[in-house]
Design a binder for these strands. Structure first.
Lengths: 319, 319
DNA sequence: TCGCCGTATGGGCAAATACTCACGCGCACC
DNA sequence: GGTGCGCGTGAGTATTTGCCCATACGGCGA
């Protein structure tokens, strides 16, 4: 009513303002409607739009005893440098929802550092959730680098894009891996790897100060297969030789030792094997299906940091 | 005591879990109830308890265009190093509610730095709100120091305690100013100031890397008066000589120049005059009544950082 | 042991919120 | 200029939530 400037405000501005009044101000949608001169319906739509667009972030400020216990147990058993366990949301819900805010906090922790860091990133739904949950912060002092491309065999960019989104939020220089994840032949791979641009990105990724990766399972619902990088037959063959999980496309066994597969020669991405306390590799993953893959990666130290949820943490420790 | 605190802890745990499922998981209270094996009513109570206890933090990740404009204008006009303008909540709501989360973010920004910093703090409702809105972070590398005491003339500790609360949340060493805000005579003040403990805290405060202060108005509702540090007569006399506002008890005129008052000799706290880009002084304040005081403090650079709300920002710029 | 009092609990109900649907407007394509 | 499509809107409705109240439980003093 008195706020005439609302008239020309963009829809997102209005949504943000409505959500602000609703969540922070504690007004009802009726009050928001009269405050902003809208119908109650519209106020409701704005609020729900703001939530859907991720304008509103909710975080829990309380360390649940059970989660803290699991964190401590994981830290002790696998010598982790970072570990967060978030409450589960029940079996039918996407666990990414639960771990994304915590993963975002870990990322913010890195971004808040003053010195210039090289941050390497994998791909996947969990990392994408992390980036979506991240608060925009100006952190141009850091460099972001991809461990692998985001182009599938057929040329589509269906794989979850992480690095560009993140770079947009933090305004940092970024170095995507400018190649497909997987190529058709060893020769093609050799050609690509010899390119200066590729060599530069690889070099940067290998020198990363901190690395964030998803962890893929090698069961029937393996991301490598659902994303079209492996056929069902290939998957079964790889399962047969002991595949337990995969980080950035590189497949390892139940002890977390990378397998020597024909596939490897066609993978273009950087293999993660640098996890040390000074250069941590943080795994972001949760879900029943990923327990085996996570336990293996933790056992050999492919990852030495973990953000997961309660049932997954319990599952890892149960083995 | 341990038994009751265990009870409280487990109740808080339950509350946190319920709120997590509600806000992050998006379950209804019915679903939470069956998930956790409770009645719906209990689930509802847990969620509302979690919100009331501040276990849940909601933040808006969208810089409203109007607020961004105001921020830019304030930055440009007063050469601010930090500036946040949050949307207003309407005239009848407490503006502290609006600015507290943003102020908390500024504080978190400082706390997230790796190096050891000295953080000086004033008192007041706004700072208290900031601390309440702060996420607990372990930041033991920093030192927290008070600019002034929190004891009134009559010995009561009615002034809003900030430093202890903050120290509790971040587990940092803290140095409260161990004296009343105001003493009866110049001699008493001299005696107090000569104490080793006081000198040490003053020295630390003067060397602060960053300072957070509230800003008090000198109108009829001046905090200095309502908190019992000034009588109405004293206030009127000080108004007559041009008082515009006050930071940590030290009164300045409309140009932001500290006034030479008899009162000064009885003030025990540290006068803030160190604002530089390297050692910023951030003012946390909002409200119609504080516009004049804020404009003055910004003009002379007593503060070079600001967290306020939209109407206040507009009011400052209008003058 | 009894009765009182404070506190926690679940049922019921009114308010608030989310969802669905039909309509209307503008726009583009025919 | 007509027509169909898509988007946004408001009305109506189902669901969810917040609040009040009667009641049960447990501690405590008489």
């Amino acid at each position: 009513m008195s706020l005439t400037s609302d008239m020309d405000a963009s829809i997102d501005d209005q949504a943000a303002r409505a959500a602000w009044l609703y969540y922070v101000g504690g007004l009802t949608q009726d009050q928001i409607a009269s405050e902003m001169g809208l119908s109650r319906q519209r106020a409701q739509r704005l609020v729900s739009r703001a939530v859907a667009a991720g304008l509103i972030h909710v975080r829990l400020n309380h360390h649940l005893a059970r989660c803290v216990e699991l964190e401590a147990a994981l830290r002790a058993r696998f010598g982790l440098v970072r570990c967060r366990v978030m409450p589960g949301l029940g079996p039918s819900r996407d666990p990414v929802r639960s771990i994304a805010p915590a993963a975002a906090e870990e990322m913010e922790r890195v971004l808040a550092e003053n010195g210039s860091r090289v941050i390497a990133l994998g791909t996947g739904r969990a990392l994408r959730g992390m980036v979506d949950a991240l608060s925009p912060v100006e952190a141009p002092q850091h460099r972001l680098v991809s461990l692998l491309g985001n182009i599938a065999l057929d040329g589509s960019a269906s794989y979850f894009e992480v690095i560009m989104r993140l770079a947009e939020k933090v305004r940092a220089p970024h170095y995507p891996m400018p190649v497909p994840v997987l190529v058709d032949s060893v020769e093609e791979n050799r050609t690509l790897q010899s390119l200066g641009a590729v060599r530069k990105v690889r070099g940067l990724a290998q020198a990363a100060d901190v690395t964030f990766v998803g962890v893929g399972q090698m069961s029937e619902d393996a991301p490598l297969m659902t994303d079209g990088f492996l056929t069902a037959d290939e998957l079964h063959e790889i399962q047969r030789v002991g595949a337990a999980g995969e980080v950035a496309g590189w497949i390892y066994d139940r002890q977390g030792r990378y397998l020597d597969l024909a596939l490897n020669a066609r993978l273009t991405g950087v293999r993660v094997e640098i996890a040390t306390p000074e250069r941590p590799v943080i795994g972001i993953a949760a879900g029943e299906a990923k327990i085996v893959a996570l336990r293996a990666a933790l056992t050999s130290g492919i990852i030495n940091g973990l953000v997961t949820d309660e049932p997954t943490a319990a599952g890892i420790l149960a083995g």
